[in-house]
Design a protein around this nucleic acid. Structure first.
Lengths: 119, 119
DNA sequence: ATGCTCGTACGATACTCATCGTAGTACGGC
DNA sequence: GCCGTACTACGATGAGTATCGTACGAGCAT
């Protein structure tokens, strides 16, 4: 084995290292907001490849990293796939209602946009 | 001379031009979050000079502009002063509960920090 | 082992942004 | 008219970031 210690450890902030500004910044990007919405809708850990994002794989990796380092999601390897899950418990403990409110707001905005253009 | 019509008009987005990503981005900066907290606490329009921010006036102007252009605050001139007010009605209509939840989260985080370091 | 798929690392690039200093404009008071 | 106060505009700068392409590493299936 070797490969120097645990080859695929992922850095996550502890609960008390999560900052509001960082979370808001992580959520202020359209691509990342969409990832979080999907994650919340499925309410389960999803692999990166589940998402059909309008960016390349490199950029996808980048966005997942921002989400992880800000404390919004938790990532763990499972074979070749990497599973992503919302840290809903931590976020709810730190900022009660924030995640739900943002998600509701995102849905509302998506609805407005559909309604405005569509049909 | 003249000063051409209304000399000091300020551009504001209309309610339906306000986007969630922009609002979250505006709130994801510590200086701006503090401005918004003060504005919410006073529940009144405040002049720029009311705030004692750890940045220069140029930078302050910049932050107020970001807040205005994202739709978080409304600004209007009153003599030489410029008054700033939260667009709470618009934000509540678009994203119900968002502003309150973020403000509560900000207070909670500030409380945690005070409690952690200080006496 | 060979190859396939999933995801990472690295380098490059172009853009945004937070910050500042200086110079300027608008308004109100003297 | 003149000056001070309040804020803005402009230019510069350094840091961050969103994006990509290419090359690599880890695990699974055959």
């Amino acid at each position: 084995m070797s490969t120097a210690a645990s080859p695929r450890a992922l850095e996550h902030p502890t609960r008390d290292q999560i900052g509001l500004e960082g979370v808001l910044h992580a959520l202020s990007d359209a691509v990342r907001l969409r990832i979080v919405r999907d994650l919340a809708r499925e309410d389960d850990a999803l692999s990166c490849s589940y998402f059909d994002l309008p960016v390349t794989k490199s950029t996808t990796t980048h966005h997942f990293r921002v989400l992880r380092e800000s404390g919004v999601i938790r990532q763990m390897y499972q074979g070749t796939a990497k599973l992503n899950a919302l840290r809903k418990d931590d976020l709810d403990a730190l900022f009660p209602g924030l995640l739900d409110t943002v998600l509701t707001a995102a849905e509302a905005q998506a609805g407005r946009r559909d309604g405005a253009e569509g049909v």
